[in-house]
Design a protein around this nucleic acid. Structure first.
Lengths: 211, 211
DNA sequence: CGCTATATATAAGC
DNA sequence: GCTTATATATAGCG
């Protein structure tokens, strides 16, 4: 009997020519990458940050405990630190991103809130038809302008939240994070997505899945 | 005939207890992750940066075209951006407990993990001794009342954000680098490994492979 | 997006 | 590190 499909086929490691295929591949692989990163964090309690810019120039990022924390640390380590330079470099053929274990709590919280929201929404706009929150709205459903607003909003939101967190004395960033067995247990995560720069006015391109 | 080995075995998605195994797994998976990232870049011409801190606190990073370029861009976008700038970058949206739409798969994974967790929860502590932010606190640890408060906070926060966002009404990005086919070909595997900060006073640990 | 049939990634071992 | 037997990730399609 003829096989229903050919199954996965080997592909050359070169830029995919067909735009459509490229887009779908990007989406799938980005997801896979994030998952891998997530698992790495969960399994080993490692910390990681990943920043990816799609061909369509949208930026996706993830970090555990947060993108910023990891990046900051990286920056701090790479830049300053005159004297001792314990650093070493290896060469590898990859780039990677780490994701943290998408905290289940998060999902749960989101869900609950969503639930809560469904009841008395409309406070924001009319957007939350299907998404828990406006910020979870599929980017593709937003116009360029809306997208920008979205981004701006998120920016502010972030700052606010962080400020609040600081107030609440809940941030543990003071020193640095060290991954201890316990912390990894209650993994947290941070996922970011933003539009890098599709921002050209007439840019009338479509964005398939998540490119 | 008896199989020489049992082959790959399925493992629980939780922190690996045995230190030795954890170390091995970290090394292998980090490598795999980097490879995946590399492939993503090559196949789709995307840009990416990855920073990983091992349980042993060593930092590994990779970036295409370079860690810095990607990170810088990210930082530029995420950091404050008072007003207009010549060629600004995109604004970031990271942080906060914003689960981007894109990780439905994550959600899925999360769900599974969560399911698993439900069984033996309570492991999480009440306070954020090791947790990054309050909002990342396991909701389970919150009482109904606290939950309500939490939700309320988010609500307010959201409104503020929206208001503010409307005021600002700007923030945008512009160009950025785009990887061209050629560049992606010669993927600059710039893998930097640097000692993050073994710098802890008594840190008398051993570092097996690359942990 | 959901499905296969395969190409890969890897948990145990040695 | 290097192998082997499986668990996963996914390319091509509908």
């Amino acid at each position: 009997m003829m096989k229903k499909t050919q199954g996965r086929k080997k592909i050359e490691m070169k830029k995919i020519p067909k735009t459509t295929n490229l887009q779908v591949t990007f989406s799938k692989r980005r997801a896979g990458l994030f998952k891998k990163a997530s698992e790495l964090c969960v399994l080993t309690g490692a910390e990681a940050a990943v920043i990816v810019q799609s061909p369509g120039n949208r930026v996706y990022a993830f970090g555990h405990p947060s993108v910023d924390s990891v990046v900051d640390k990286y920056v701090a380590g790479s830049s300053s630190m005159p004297e001792q330079k314990p650093a070493i470099n290896e060469v590898d053929v990859n780039s990677a991103c780490v994701i943290d274990k998408f905290n289940q709590e998060y999902i749960e919280i989101t869900k609950k809130i969503e639930e809560e929201k469904r009841k008395n929404v409309d406070v924001v706009k009319k957007e939350t038809d299907d998404g828990p929150f406006w910020w979870e709205q599929p980017i593709k459903d937003l116009g360029e302008e809306e997208l920008e607003e979205y981004i701006a909003s998120m920016e502010v939101l972030r700052n606010k939240v962080i400020a609040r967190a600081n107030d609440m004395h809940m941030i543990r960033n003071s020193s640095m994070f060290n991954v201890d067995d316990e912390s990894s247990k209650k993994v947290d995560k941070l996922l970011v997505t933003r539009n890098a720069a599709a921002s050209r006015k007439e840019h009338g391109g479509q964005s398939p899945s998540s490119i």
